[in-house]
Amino acid sequence: MSETKRLQEIASQVRRDIVRMVHAVQSGHPGGSLGCADLLTALYFNILDHNPKDFDIKGNNEDVFVLSNGHISPVFYSVLARSGYFPVSELATFRKLNSRLQGHPATKEKLPGVRVASGSLGQGLSFAVGVALQKKLDQDSKTVYVNLGDGELQEGQNWEAIMFAAHNKIDNLIATVDFNGQQIDGSVEEIMGFKELRTKFEAFGWLVMDMDGNNMEQILEVMQEAKEQTGNQKPIVVLMKTEMGAGVDFMMGSHAWHGIAPNDKQLQDALAQLPETLGDY
């Protein structure tokens, strides 16, 4: 089996996990989770040099991934569990009382794989820059990855971090922007659009790359290219075109499924489109 095919099969299971988790508690954010399922699968099963079996919150001498748009916790939890950070059965506790799988990622309950809380938007990039600084100080040659939502870029703190990272040549950092064009109240362009996000990042001094975030082959190729560009005095951002709800036809094409759960019938419709490849939790 090709690596691309292997990852696509894992991503299918991750998507099943997402809709099942959100359905079980009738809350959570399936749209963005489905849209980022391919990227996070590629990261956790191919790209990251990490230690799922022996999680150390410090992340020294390993790649560190930061999820800034914490509301897509279902996809984060699924790839963490499926890659071995904690038992897959624990996905059934998502958003329930006394769970380590909080509505938005948190460290307080000590869930392996989570290094910082996120959910209040706009904070993850600064945190990731801090980790990148720490790695430079410690001569740790590994890479820091951070995923941002597109709507999230409306938060001003991001632009403080974007300025800082370019000015200080933070070149061990790869940011991905989940460009699905949707946010809670409508399309990003309608709410407060970016028009030219590429030129904005370029003007701030970043190296900008594009990729189809729902095309596994392209993800592997572009993320490899991005990795090769680290160490070149510039922070890197990959503008990742995704489809909110990707993989479940009726969830695609609008912002409607940002933060609502499928009912029983919709769950069955969704699961019918997503082959069970690794076994449901």
Partner: peptide, 11 residues
């Protein structure tokens, strides 16, 4: 935010 990241890695 950067301070939190620096602390996370052990600084």
């Amino acid at each position: 935010g950067m301070a939190a990241g620096l602390a996370s890695g052990g600084k």
